[in-house]
Design a protein around this nucleic acid. Sequence first.
DNA 1: ACCGTAAGGTTAACACCGTTAGGTTAACGG
DNA 2: CCGTTAACCTAACGGTGTTAACCTTACGGT
Lengths: 212, 212
Amino acid sequence: MVKTAVTTSREHEAAILDAASSLMAEGGVEALSMRAVAERVGVSATALYHYFENKQDLVDRVVRLGFERFGTYLRDAAQRHPEGSMERVRAMGEAYLQFALENEAYFRVIFSIQLRGPRALEELPGGGGYPLLRQFVQDAMDAGSMRRFDPDLVAHYLWATVHGIVTLALACRLRGCEACETDGGGASPIDLFHAFDPFVRHGLSTEDALLP
Amino acid sequence: MVKTAVTTSREHEAAILDAASSLMAEGGVEALSMRAVAERVGVSATALYHYFENKQDLVDRVVRLGFERFGTYLRDAAQRHPEGSMERVRAMGEAYLQFALENEAYFRVIFSIQLRGPRALEELPGGGGYPLLRQFVQDAMDAGSMRRFDPDLVAHYLWATVHGIVTLALACRLRGCEACETDGGGASPIDLFHAFDPFVRHGLSTEDALLP
DNA sequence: ACCGTAAGGTTAACACCGTTAGGTTAACGG
DNA sequence: CCGTTAACCTAACGGTGTTAACCTTACGGT
């Protein structure tokens, strides 16, 4: 085995991943079949089994790549805002939403049934940006712009809220709910995200908070 | 065509739906195949096409049934608490979470890719309990236990937060996030839900809210 | 120089899938 | 009594993931 051979092999693997990735982005998960990927690469379907154990393995690798891109996207968006600010945290949420809407098929697979079982989120690089979010929350608390709570709890809270908007938007396009017809010029998921801001900042209760 | 024949037909249809439903609950969506359903009913696979247009049609019907059960479950849970109280709203969220965790496969399909396209949530009976949530939010505002905002906006906010917990729990079991290892006796999704309560009530900001 | 080995690829085939076509049976209505 | 139709069947088609067996090609060690 020689260097050039290895390089070629890696390149072929990358080409397969690339084909699978774009195939999925175009037609969703159901459009990703071994035979379709193989045809796009210009090879027989069984050849793929020299690079990947099975289809699940291929899909996992594609998801992994998507996850890395996702994390980078989030980091870049957040770091355009000052350290310790609520804006930095907010920007990350907005980027989360934007990435999901622009890479719908990608995002669907990232958080799809495929990810179940033993191989869970913890194995993924960067944890999907969660550690970063936690850090920004911690920073905001240290800087005094956010009330002191368990930063993990708050990070989960923010994550769940944004993720909820995304999945609801992807599942039903938030249509049929009077507040947010995406077709009729109503509120987009992004608008919804912005509209939630006062709730997240000041809560829903009529009683004043007991500041600790 | 005679009464008994119609009854039998309806019963057969119900039997098919029942088989499909339990098949899905046991092994997820991928376990639901026309042939498997047919075998469980004791009939050939093609016989199903006398009752359902195609597989998608069958799945849609199963989902519809699940949606109805879901709505009933939510209504029952909420109405055990006094009208106009925050507790009623909260109970609905808790029921949402509980139903999703106890009927994982069901819930997965309800909010899965299958629901995409023209036939969206609005066609489903009861809108998945959303109108009910909106009503409870409105009641809470009228009773003075919740600050006055656009009730649709608040209902969406609460829905998104709970739905976010659910989907995150289903996707990654919230493991690998230090706060919530479901295996290691850590916080369960339900605990997480409860822990979010002060955030939802009083917000995260260090600044006091300008009460309108 | 040569032979073994292994990578990278092939075709053929298996078992399953959703779905269609066409045929069979039984029961009803005119 | 005949025609129609509901309800079901088997056979088959094209698609899927995957395995088995085989074929090149090119390298490395003796």
